[in-house]
Amino acid sequence: MTSQKNWGVLAEFANPAELLHAAQELHKLGYRKFETWSPFPIHGMDDAMGLTGSKVPWLTLGGGLTGLTIGLLLQWWTGAVDYPLVIGGKPYFAWQFATPVTFELSILLSAFGTVFGMFALNGLPRPYHPLDRVARFRRVTDDGFFLSVEVADPLFDMERTHNQLAELGGAHITVVEDK
């Protein structure tokens, strides 16, 4: 085993209200490298933690425009350039008949951009996380509301942070180690 080092502290809160409140206060105190963990998204938490907007929409848009371009080029090039063939008296290429396939490809690639973009932005898949070493933390997907502060935060001080979390109502405050 390699040497153990501290990753941060983890505190448990009783309910979404206390977690939200704690996040607000920590943000006010100037902490930035902290995270809240909950079984469902909590309304207002993004503002409480001072997060900026998600970048996912840009990836959606990028995917959509790619799909649009591919759809039009594919139908135009295969039908009007590479192998022109008169079928049913229809033109080799027309925006009208190209609409369905172009639309579907735009949606498909938008969805790819959205889902894979979201996973990428979230850094998933992530098989291991230091918090996995805290047994209580498993309740995060059930009914546990947690808040962690990382050692990497410039304001982090083991004792002070510990106390601040306790004052905010945090219970079972644990030091989390990383390998």
Binding site: A23, E35, T36, W37, S38, P39, F40, P41, I42, M45, D46, M49, L51, S54, K55, V56, P57, T60, P100, F103, E104, I107, S110, A111, T114, V115, G117, M118, F119, L121, N122, L124, P125, R126, P127, Y128, H129, L131, F137, V140, T141
Partner: peptide, 30 residues
């Protein structure tokens, strides 16, 4: 995938879910 309910993850997740819903709606119709 190692989901642990981090709020930063929820933020992107909710956005993505909303966008997927918005994409899926015209898709169903189409």
């Amino acid at each position: 995938l190692g989901w642990r309910g981090a709020n930063r993850h929820w933020q992107n997740y909710e956005r993505a879910y909303m966008l997927l819903a918005a994409l899926a709606t015209p898709l169903v119709l189409s």
